[in-house]
């Protein structure tokens, strides 16, 4: 397997801190804009639709720890990526509340090398100290560095 690291799937340009957004759709839309600007989406609309459809289907990807991971595999994605948003106050998200939102974009295709990294990231999120660090980070650079530290590939 070729080397895929966290730097391939995210960067400081894909991090938004202290977001002031009203709702779930708005945060997804704002983070999708970041992915789009970073050249990772070939068809933003298709991708966002897929994400929202999945959110509806599952009743929201947020859960107890204040994290939401909206995500989709979609032909609207040209390059895998993850955008991270932190809202200034917890957002009503499905049946839960969330202030840490990871928007994951994965291209269609069966064997996706990026899946491993994304899975690693998802795993780390189950740990309290990682979440705390993410909440305390003061710059996008710091967030990316945190991910880099915590995800070994």
């Amino acid at each position: 397997m070729s080397e895929v690291s966290i730097d391939d799937i995210t960067s400081k340009d894909l991090v938004a801190l202290d977001m002031e957004v009203e709702n779930q759709e708005a945060v997804i839309s704002a983070l999708a804009d970041l992915l789009d600007k970073d050249g990772r989406l070939s068809d933003r609309e298709t991708y966002v639709e897929a994400v929202n459809a999945r959110e509806q289907e599952t009743g929201g990807t947020a859960f107890e720890m204040g994290i939401a991971i909206p995500h989709a595999k979609s032909p609207g994605v040209s390059r895998a990526g993850v955008a991270f948003g932190r809202t200034s106050s917890p957002l009503d998200y499905g049946e839960e509340k969330a202030d840490l939102i990871f928007l994951i974009a994965a291209p269609e295709g069966e064997h996706n090398l990026h899946v491993k990294v994304l899975q690693q990231l998802a795993r780390r999120l189950m740990h309290e100290n990682f979440r705390t660090s993410l909440r305390e980070a003061s710059t996008p650079e710091e967030v990316v560095e945190l991910m880099r530290e915590n995800i070994s590939t």
């Binding site: 991971i69 989709a72 595999k73 994951i104 899946v115 899975q119 795993r123 189950m126 740990h127």
Partner: peptide, 17 residues
Amino acid sequence: CPTGIAHSAMAAEALET
């Protein structure tokens, strides 16, 4: 999970822990 990226990995981590 249907995509096998996020939630299945998180559940795996939770169960392992």
